[in-house]
């Protein structure tokens, strides 16, 4: 029996080309037609070579740089570009109910250091009772790399990473890949690498952005749930919340959404593993038809019994509290 024959996850095509793994080739073909033949041919060759990637279970991984070189005192961005076969997924920094995020171990030239991974907005994956947060098809993790002022001004810099990644569909396969690239060290400021411009532009569009300063968001804590109230100054038909930390909310529980004028209320069931009060609720709020926004909101405790709550969970919580008095 092939356990992979009953996938529970759905694959959605996110690019203009049908297959995710074709996207770079499609974009390079489009580029070719717009450029002079000689230059186009060179680009095509360069792109085909770059698109090979290092094999991981059911996909490939490639380390790319946004710039052609590095220079002392400058920060450039690296990308870990995962391309997965249809139906397979990897995980967000908070993987949800199962799985684990990719783990990176960097090998950097002397004087270089990397910052935190920028995680694209994830997607809910899984079944009705087990929900994971992750990525299908094609995803790139962007990581800043800073070159110290003391770094050399010439030569070649080897940048590498050992990446441990769990790739899942109906079943999970752990993989490990060594990826690396060589960048010239120069004295002048790094210039962008045109070959990777599309890739980085696409990846940046997938990142959650900071919540607008005009938004008013509060989180109150009830016995079994968090109530997130938001005034955004506009109506939204639906939202989805992705908690940045594990074990705060029940990942598989429905998030009860109530539209309000200029905003909404969202009830999030607390995780059974949440044993201590949390100070803040952090995560990504995805508005329907829009992108993700990073929120980080202090949690206030409900002191009085709420009587005005219009949803089942809080109503029942409140009523239980009334009954206990």
């Amino acid at each position: 029996m092939n356990p992979g024959s009953h996938p529970t996850t759905r694959s959605r095509s996110t690019g203009s080309c049908v297959k995710a793994d074709m996207r770079r080739r499609c974009s390079s073909l489009a580029l070719n037609s717009a450029l002079a033949l000689g230059a186009g041919l060179l680009l095509f060759v360069a792109n085909s070579k770059a698109a090979e990637g290092t094999p991981i279970p059911h996909g490939t991984l490639e380390l790319v740089a946004e710039n052609q070189s590095i220079a002392a005192g400058h920060t450039i961005h690296l990308g870990l570009h995962f391309q997965l076969e249809k139906g397979w997924h990897i995980y967000w920094v908070n993987p949800g109910d199962s799985g684990e995020p990719p783990r990176l171990k960097w090998r950097l030239p002397p004087g270089a250091s990397v910052g935190e991974v920028a995680w694209p907005t994830p997607r809910r994956l899984g079944t009705s009772t087990i929900v994971d947060f992750g990525y299908e098809d094609d995803v790139m993790l962007i990581v800043p790399m800073h070159a110290a002022a003391s770094m050399a001004t010439q030569g070649l810099a080897q940048v590498g990473a050992e990446v441990k990644v769990l790739v899942c569909r109906e079943m999970c396969i752990p993989g490990k890949a060594q990826v690396s690239l060589t960048l010239p060290v120069k004295s002048q400021a790094p210039v962008p690498d045109a070959r990777n411009a599309d890739l980085f532009a696409t990846a940046r569009k997938a990142l959650p952005r900071a919540a607008p300063a005009s938004w008013r968001i509060s989180v109150t804590e009830a016995k079994d749930s968090f109530l997130l109230s938001a005034n955004l100054g506009r109506n939204v038909p639906h939202v989805e919340f992705f908690p940045a930390a594990e074990s705060q909310i029940q990942d598989a529980a429905p998030q009860q959404f109530i539209a309000m004028a200029g905003g909404f209320r969202l009830t999030l069931r607390k995780s059974d593993q949440l044993l201590k009060p949390i100070e803040r609720l952090k995560g990504v709020l995805v508005l329907a038809g829009d992108r993700g926004y990073v929120i980080d909101v202090p949690v206030t405790k409900v002191v009085a019994v709420r009587r005005d709550v219009g949803d089942g969970i809080n109503l029942a919580d409140s009523l239980k509290e009334v009954m206990l008095k």
Partner: peptide, 15 residues
């Protein structure tokens, strides 16, 4: 430590 996140593979329940 009475409760933790149970890491691993998702349980392959009947759908």
């Amino acid at each position: 430590t009475p409760a933790t996140r149970p890491y691993g593979c998702s349980v392959k329940y009947r759908e």
